[in-house]
Structures are given as structure tokens and as C-alpha cells.
Simulated assay, not measured.
Amino acid sequence: MTWVVIVSIVVVSALKILITCLPTPVVKWLVGKFELHRILNMDAEITVGGEEIKGAEKEELITNFNKGTFLKKYYIHPGSERYFLYPEGGEVPIIVDFIEGKKRVSLWLYVYRDHIDVVKQYSEKMIAYSIYSNELQSGMLAE
């Protein structure tokens, strides 16, 4: 009976040490699984009003998006997805398409004076959140 207690104490102690001292790559992988505002790379396709953006303007837009600060996440009620993709006001979104893992992802960016609304759409899911990027908001793509 005492052997069972001693073995269980050793196993639980080893498990506790393993969980509290995870290696850095494992922690980055776990955090990346739940990260909402991802860093874009230069492979992304960016279109504004049907025109594809290339060159220095694309690099500047991606750099400014990556520097953006996450503000808040919006809850999307089932059936109200179209109000996030096509908000009232009729402004032209910046659409960023890229591949994340094995999924094709689209970001719809709506630039306002005080924030940027981002609608992230992949497979059948849609997530909306707001970021702040002073450079992107005051840049030439802002209206």
C-alpha cells in the first residue's frame, strides 16, 4: 500500500515539473494556437477595390498591420455575419488573403479614424476584432 502512495507522489511530482517547465517552442506553439491577431508575411495577397497591391505599398501595409495593437474582440451573433462583412457606410475594404497552416484565410480590413475593424474569415468560421495602427489609419489607404 505504501508503494502505491510513493509511486503516485513521484508521478504527480514529475507531471507537475513537466507542466510548469515547458520548453519555449512548446509554449510558442500553444500560444500560437489561440492567437487572434496573427503576423502576416509577404506571401499574402492584398486587394483594394478589386486591384491587387504590390511592391513597396504592400510591404508598408503588411508592416503597419503587423505593428497594430489588438483592442477588442467582437461577438458575431449567428445570422449577422453580413453586417460585419458589408457594414453600413459602403466603404471599400482592404482584403488580405493568405494561407495559415492548411486553411485559406481572408482578412477584411475596414479603416476608420480611431481604429481598424478586422473580420477574419476561414472555412465556415468568422471572427471580428478591432486593432489600432496609427500608421495604417493615417496612411494613404485611409479614407
Rank of each mutant, 00 (worst) to 15 (best):
S106I: 01
F65D: 00
K103L: 09
A14H: 04
V111Q: 03
A56Y: 01
C21M: 10
G90I: 06
E81C: 08
L30W: 10
G49I: 06
I95M: 12
I76D: 04
V27G: 05
V92E: 13
I62N: 00
I53C: 04
D114S: 14
A142E: 07
I46G: 03
S80Y: 09
K28E: 14
V11A: 14
L61C: 01
Y83M: 14
K16P: 00
S123Y: 01
Y122H: 11
V92I: 13
A14N: 07
R38I: 09
G79Q: 10
A128Y: 02
Y75A: 10
I99C: 06
Y86A: 11
I19V: 14
V105P: 04
L85A: 00
P78H: 02
S123F: 07
V11D: 06
L61N: 03
Y132L: 11
L71F: 01
L22S: 13
V48C: 09
V27D: 08
Y83V: 11
K125I: 02
G68K: 02
D97C: 05
K28I: 09
E51K: 12
H115G: 00
M126Q: 11
M1Y: 04
I39A: 04
E100H: 13
V11C: 12
Y132V: 01
K28H: 12
L136T: 08
L71V: 13
S138E: 09
Y110A: 05
E143Q: 09
I9K: 01
Y83D: 15
K28S: 10
L71D: 09
L141A: 00
V10T: 09
L36C: 03
G50L: 03
S80Q: 15
S80T: 15
E91L: 13
Y122D: 08
Y132T: 03
V118F: 03
W29S: 15
S130K: 10
E51G: 06
W108D: 09
K67P: 06
K103C: 07
V119I: 15
L40E: 08
V11R: 02
P78V: 04
F70N: 05
S130T: 12
P87V: 05
I94A: 06
K54P: 02
V12Q: 09
A14Q: 05
I116M: 02
D97M: 04
E88D: 13
E45T: 11
Y122T: 05
A56D: 11
T69D: 07
L30V: 06
V7R: 03
F34K: 13
E52Y: 06
S13C: 11
S123G: 06
M140V: 12
T69A: 08
Q121M: 11
I19W: 15
E52N: 10
M126P: 03
I99T: 15
G50F: 02
Y129M: 04
D117V: 06
I19L: 15
W29K: 12
R82S: 15
S13F: 14
T20R: 07
K72L: 13
K33N: 10
V92P: 00
F84E: 09
I94C: 09
E52I: 11
I131H: 00
A14E: 02
F84Y: 13
G90F: 07
K33R: 15
L109A: 02
T20Y: 12
P78W: 03
V4S: 11
